[in-house]
Write a protein that binds this DNA or RNA. Structure first.
Lengths: 226, 226
DNA sequence: GGGCCTATCTTGACGGTGGCAAGATGGGTG
DNA sequence: CACCCATCTTGCCACCGTCAAGATAGGCCC
């Protein structure tokens, strides 16, 4: 493992994570003429725009161009750019949760192992969708007052808290706020650093090595301080 | 402590950190007429712009307005908006390092305690200058190929690595990449979460309580896993 | 089956933005 | 004193997000 390259936040990950879903909102039938279901098409285009240019260079007109419609078309479906990014952030959370689901699917019943799986899913998401990760966790543009986004982000947080409490309970303790904070912080920190390309995986890119490396670090910070 | 409010990244910190320096580049004499030293004035204005509008709404013309000069004036000193943000990021790293220095000043000689001080300084910086923190650690706009910024960001990373190694050495071990990664990740995660307003300090805002809370979490993740 | 109704999309305009080029200004130096 | 050149201003361009008005066509009711 090389911990390195302290600076540039834009370097690309060296390889894609194992089984983290990478598909867009869902390739719906596209239906009729008067322009299929533009809403879904715009979300796909918006994600492409985000991946290509990043949140700071994101352009609503660019999204419209990608979708092959006029520059004002998105307004009817999303109101304004913030509305589109809010909807995209909600989609991002759905993707985020499926990354965790994918890890959970191969984890055993142990709450601690399941918690580690959630953490690895969190990191998978950051590596697979760095721009979406930034949109979701570090942008002021999505409106978290929005019902859909509020619900899904609340669900993600609830999942974290439930996981931490399950670990504590399984070990005969009760989870403290410090447990939640430590768990969230270490996982989020690793995700931020690896997703941003500031911290690289060990050896080559052997996913198993990287997973073991990350899991060991997370484990270190989990409830039983010692 | 309440770990809460999973979503909005923009909420303001509830109180300012203890002794983290908060001043701008330095209130230089402003000198002559033909427009004093505009360069410094523009950096001050740029930081104000960043604090007020965030990196995503940052406007070069807004900076010029704040400084009371024409919209094209910054170009002569910084080339373009990226150049200004690069210089501001370098200033941010200087501020970052002084936040750590401030904590170090009251820490004893123990490497472990000094490492915790660096971590608390890191968090202080994120709380005192959330917009600058995002510019430095989560923006693609500063150019890390720039000599000044590259040097100062390299120094910050070197400080982290040296601190981790000092802790390991003092405890008769040798620092592993995992030690560096774990330390950076936990501190960065806490900073990101508290600076963004997603994770709040315990009890009221008693700085001592908060410091103890953070220090305990960091300590948990430091080298001796057990 | 025909005619309106309305959701959907386009066109065109506005103010604001970053970047460039050309011109004005004035301090420092010969 | 006169020139020079760093510095700053003015004006322009393309692009951006948003709004208002117009075009298009699918669906519904008779």
């Amino acid at each position: 493992m090389t911990v390195n390259d302290h600076a540039p936040p834009t370097a690309a990950p060296t390889s894609a994570p194992t089984s983290c879903p990478t598909s867009a909102p869902a390739p719906r039938p596209k239906a009729a003429y008067h322009h299929g279901d533009l809403r879904a098409a715009l979300l796909v285009a918006a994600e492409a725009e985000l991946d290509a240019r990043g949140i700071e260079e994101f352009s609503l007109r660019g999204v419209a161009r990608r979708a092959g419609v006029s520059h004002a078309a998105p307004a009817h479906h999303f109101g304004d750019a913030g509305g589109l990014l809010t909807a995209l952030a909600a989609e991002g959370f759905r993707r985020f949760l499926s990354c965790q689901d994918a890890r959970q699917a191969t984890a055993g019943p142990s709450p601690r192992v399941r918690m580690l799986a959630d953490g690895l899913g969190y990191i998978d998401f950051a590596r697979a969708h760095p721009a979406l990760f930034r949109l979701v966790f570090a942008s002021a543009r999505p409106d978290y007052g929005d019902a859909e986004l509020g619900a899904i982000s609340g669900a993600a947080y609830a999942r974290l808290e439930a996981g931490v409490q399950a670990v504590a309970r399984a070990e005969g303790r009760v989870a403290t706020p410090a447990d939640v904070a430590a768990t969230w912080a270490i996982v989020h920190g690793l995700a931020e650093l690896t997703g941003g390309g500031r911290l690289f995986a060990p050896g080559g890119d052997a996913p198993a090595d990287r997973d073991a490396f990350m899991a060991a670090i997370i484990d270190r910070c989990l409830p039983p301080p010692c």
